[in-house]
Simulated scan of single mutants.
Amino acid sequence: MRTTSAFVGTLVSLVVTAGLGALGVWLARLSGLTTEENLGLASVAEGLNFSQLLTASLIIAGLGVLNDTTITQASAIWELRAVGPHLSRWELFGSGMRIGRDHIASTIYTIVFAYAGAALSTLVLLSFFSQPLNLLLSTEPFAEEIVRTLGSGIGLVLSVPLTTAVAALTVGGADPHGHEAWPQEQRTSVPRRAAG
């Protein structure tokens, strides 16, 4: 159930990320032909849709971080249940969300710096030109990074409440006497607490 809750959170968040990425690529009218590799690929694969390839790269780029977040959130709920068998599902959700907020803050920084590092040569090159910020942001290399960061970031932020809610609903109900209230398949893997 722990793995399933992480999987459901990842799947739903991935659908959101894919939708936002496709929408961003379409609204910004990105061609996907900003790198030498893609230009070379265009010469040998004439029928390839580079806008769709850009959307696919956006989804794949965010999947690793998304998977890390959903697994961590599901695991946190299970650990919270182990130390607090008396907690209600709503209390589990609240505690999980507090953990998730801290996790998201650090992960968003990781994404932004990773994208900035990947586009560092472009940033340095553009720093030599005295152009207004709105003009720089409208160039395709910058627009690609903005769409990539926003799509992945929003999907990542939404993954926390989604996964936390699924995990809190599937982890098992609270026991007012402090005994564990785990689903049957979980009882063999978690030591039972002594009655207080």
Rank of each mutant, 00 (worst) to 15 (best):
M1N: 09
R2P: 06
R2K: 14
R2C: 08
T3R: 10
T3P: 08
T4P: 03
F7E: 03
T10M: 15
L14Q: 00
V15N: 09
V16Y: 00
V16L: 15
G19W: 02
A22I: 12
L23P: 03
G24N: 05
G24H: 02
L27T: 13
L30H: 01
G32C: 08
L33G: 08
L33A: 11
T35I: 05
N38G: 06
L39K: 13
G47K: 14
N49V: 08
F50K: 13
F50W: 07
S51W: 04
A56N: 00
A56Q: 05
A61T: 13
L63S: 12
V65M: 15
D68F: 05
D68N: 12
D68Y: 04
T70S: 09
I71C: 12
T72V: 05
Q73L: 10
W78H: 12
L80I: 13
L80H: 03
L80G: 08
L80E: 05
A82C: 04
A82S: 15
G84F: 08
P85S: 10
E91R: 13
F93K: 00
G94P: 01
G94N: 10
G96I: 03
G96E: 04
M97W: 13
I99W: 09
H103W: 04
S106K: 05
S106D: 10
T110M: 11
I111Y: 06
V112Y: 04
F113C: 10
A119C: 09
A119P: 08
A119Q: 04
T122N: 07
V124P: 06
V124E: 05
V124Y: 06
L126I: 06
S127T: 14
F128V: 11
S130Y: 07
L136Q: 01
T139C: 03
A143D: 12
A143K: 01
E144V: 15
E145Y: 06
T149H: 02
T149G: 12
L150K: 02
G151K: 01
V157W: 03
L158F: 14
S159L: 04
V160D: 03
V160S: 14
P161C: 08
P161N: 11
L162S: 04
V166W: 00
A167V: 10
G173Q: 07
H177G: 07
E185S: 14
E185C: 07
E185A: 14
Q186F: 13
V190R: 15
V190K: 06
R192G: 10
A194P: 00
A194L: 13
A194S: 14
A194M: 07
